[in-house]
């Protein structure tokens, strides 16, 4: 068993154990014995015909698992969903990555996949928002858009014929992420959903749950349409005679994050950390609940990583799932 590395006292140990046992009993009702390990035979009904999916292979006419995970069946398809594996991209996934190299016409991104992803200069919107062919000048100015070690949010475009993974960032919501924290969790904890960008208004922060297990917690930034903004700016310039001092102050304001927001970012980040050490599914609802729990208990941000809060979150999660199953049943 993957041990939770925390120093718990006797009562906390018991409480955690009880909460985890409760979780186990809840899930065992839902799916029984679907877990397999490497080289386990997967029982299938051969009369209906079988399509072998990921994580399976054939041996002496039997379907055998090649990974540890959970067997999933969709009509004829039988596959093994691996748990602790690296990220497996699917087209349209929203991911967060870190630039590791600026190459000719492209950026290379680390996204927790078996290869580095490629973001072509041509598959992203230029900052000025104009649609045109990328010139050599644009190529020379690539570092003004993203530099090495920048954190970027993008979408999976697909695999190129040479097997490399390409990304795209053709919207205002994608692009460089600043003033926040990047957290890495195992990708199996993040579920694919309709919405991966979240704006937690009450805290003034943005939360991006990348499908690759990279989670961004940062200050909220209004997504602006550059065309509209330009028009506004132009009209403003005509109206006001802005002095240099004024613009500098404005710039400073733009790059300044108020302490409350910083605290909220840290609090949310710690909530994600606690959830990932416990191995719970990470969704906005659970994150906000955890943040609320911590602030309702008047805990300091650093106390959130302590053993007591960890046990509390586990108990809370057990209770939440119990209620959910009750509602269903």
């Amino acid at each position: 068993m993957r041990g939770i590395q925390l120093s718990l006292n006797q009562t906390q140990k018991l409480r955690l154990q009880r909460a985890l046992e409760q979780l186990e009993s809840l899930s065992s009702k839902a799916n029984s014995n679907a877990s397999v390990t490497i080289a386990d035979t997967i029982p299938v009904n051969y009369e209906d015909g079988v399509l072998k999916g990921h994580g399976t292979s054939e041996l002496d006419g039997e379907v055998v698992a090649t990974m540890c995970g959970v067997v999933e069946r969709v009509n004829k398809l039988v596959y093994v969903r691996a748990l602790r594996a690296r990220y497996k991209p699917e087209i349209g996934d929203i991911i967060v990555g870190r630039v590791i190299e600026v190459a000719p016409k492209r950026w290379r991104l680390e996204i927790n996949f078996s290869q580095d992803a490629v973001l072509m200069l041509s598959s992203m919107n230029l900052p000025d928002g104009i649609q045109r062919r990328r010139t050599a000048v644009d190529e020379l100015n690539m570092r003004s858009i993203f530099e090495e070690n920048d954190v970027i949010c993008a979408e999976v475009r697909g695999f190129q014929h040479d097997g490399s993974l390409h990304l795209q960032a053709r919207s205002q919501k994608y692009g460089k992420l600043e003033r926040g924290q990047l957290l890495t969790v195992p990708p199996y904890l993040v579920k694919r959903r309709k919405q991966h960008f979240h704006n937690l208004e009450q805290y003034g922060i943005d939360l991006i749950l990348g499908c690759n297990g990279f989670i961004w917690v940062g200050e909220h930034i209004e997504a602006k349409d550059p065309m509209v903004e330009d028009q506004v700016n132009k009209s403003e310039q005509q109206n006001t005679k802005s002095s240099k001092n004024f613009t500098r102050l404005e710039e400073q304001e733009q790059t300044y994050t108020p302490p409350e927001t910083r605290q909220n970012i840290c609090r949310t980040a710690n909530a994600v950390r606690v959830l990932s050490t416990l191995g719970f599914n990470i969704t906005v609802e659970v994150i906000t609940e955890t943040v609320e729990l911590s602030s309702s208990l008047n805990l300091d941000i650093h106390e959130m990583l302590g053993s007591e809060f960890c046990v509390l979150v586990a108990e809370r999660e057990a209770e939440r799932r119990r209620l959910l199953t009750k509602k269903k049943g």
């Binding site: 899930s27 877990s35 748990l83």
Partner: peptide, 18 residues
């Protein structure tokens, strides 16, 4: 080893929940 792996997989799965 098989026992250990199965135990580990089950733990990860039930902790994750649905």
């Amino acid at each position: 080893i098989r026992e250990v792996l199965l135990e580990n997989t089950k733990t990860l799965e039930y902790r994750r929940g649905v």
